[in-house]
Amino acid sequence: MLLTRIRRGLALAAVVLTLAAASAGAQDQEGPLHVAARNGDAAAIRTLLAKGASVDARDKDGATPLLVATHNNRVEAAKALIDAGADVNAKDRIHDSPYLYAGARGHNEILKMTLAHGADLKSTNRYGGTALIPAAERGLVETVRLLIDAGVDLNHVNRLHWTALLEAIILGNGGAA
């Protein structure tokens, strides 16, 4: 009798723990490498990669650890991932890549690394724009210079049929975002 109650109690505890883990996973669904990237923990990133973690693993949104690091402007984490061969052009479900996002948000240190490691200058975001278009619209002057110097097409036209100059004039406010 006592043994049966203990077994039932353990079974119930297992179900509760499984549901709690599933609930947390539904919110996060990040692997340890994504967490380390979000937190900027370059040492943990190197350790996880040395233990076999996939440098381009995807989370529930299709983001790689490098994109997560880029979202949070975690330069050292991004460097550790890029040095390990992370794909700077890997796009998530909304068509952001580390290169495109760094350019759009003015994360210039990460942008420089992506440019040095094979950024696809013709790559476009979900709006059909290159990294230059949102950078110009947001008034990110240094970022715009980096992208122009890298060779991004100044006359690329997005889905609205606008160039970076038109976005800057029509949507910009004349200064940094």
Rank of each mutant, 00 (worst) to 15 (best):
M1V: 13
M1K: 09
M1Y: 10
T4V: 12
R5A: 14
R5E: 09
R5S: 12
R7Q: 07
R8I: 14
L10P: 05
L12H: 01
A13L: 15
A14V: 14
V15Q: 03
V15K: 00
V16D: 02
V16A: 13
L17F: 13
A22H: 06
A22C: 13
Q29T: 11
E30F: 05
G31H: 11
L33H: 08
H34W: 01
A36L: 06
A37V: 04
N39D: 15
D41M: 05
D41L: 05
A42F: 04
A42W: 02
A43Y: 01
A43W: 02
R46Q: 15
T47Q: 15
T47L: 09
L48E: 04
K51R: 14
A53H: 11
A53R: 12
S54N: 13
R58A: 10
K60Q: 13
A63M: 12
A63F: 02
L66F: 03
L67D: 09
T70Y: 07
N73R: 06
R74Q: 15
V75R: 07
E76G: 03
E76I: 02
A77H: 06
A78D: 05
A84W: 08
G85F: 03
G85K: 01
N89L: 04
A90L: 08
D92R: 01
I94C: 02
H95Q: 14
P98L: 00
P98K: 03
Y99L: 09
G103T: 05
G103V: 02
R105E: 15
G106N: 07
H107E: 10
N108H: 04
E109G: 00
L111H: 06
K112G: 06
M113D: 06
M113L: 15
L115H: 06
L115R: 04
H117D: 07
G118V: 12
D120V: 02
L121H: 12
K122L: 09
R126W: 04
R126A: 14
I133Q: 10
P134W: 07
P134R: 07
A136D: 01
E137C: 07
E137W: 02
G139M: 10
G139P: 09
L140T: 08
L140C: 05
V144W: 03
L146F: 10
L147C: 06
I148F: 03
I148S: 04
A150F: 09
N155C: 02
N155Q: 14
N155K: 13
R159E: 14
R159P: 00
T163K: 01
L165T: 07
I170E: 12
L171W: 14
L171P: 03
N173I: 08
N173E: 14
A176W: 05
